[in-house]
Amino acid sequence: MTKEQIKDTILEIIAQIIPDEDLSNLKGDIPIREQVELDSMDFLDIIMELRKRYGVEVPEDDYIHLATLDSSVAYLEPRLRKF
């Protein structure tokens, strides 16, 4: 997957998890949770979805890397490159 595809995938996963939110203006460099209503259970849904879809394990210490859309793409790029 390219960085652009990874970004689209993350957005698609988030859209599925918080279907009432408008994600069209989500800024890449601001923490996602500051822009939309996304609580800790929703965040765990993102982790679970990455695990189910791609077998990607995100250890708890790395959760910080998924704070913004840009940092998520950077963190996931080496892990999703092969897909």
């Binding site: 998890i17 918080i18 279907p19 009432d20 259970m41 929703d42």
Partner: peptide, 8 residues
């Protein structure tokens, strides 16, 4: 209900 409430 919101869609999220339904999902959860």
């Amino acid at each position: 209900q919101k869609k999220k409430e339904l999902r959860r």
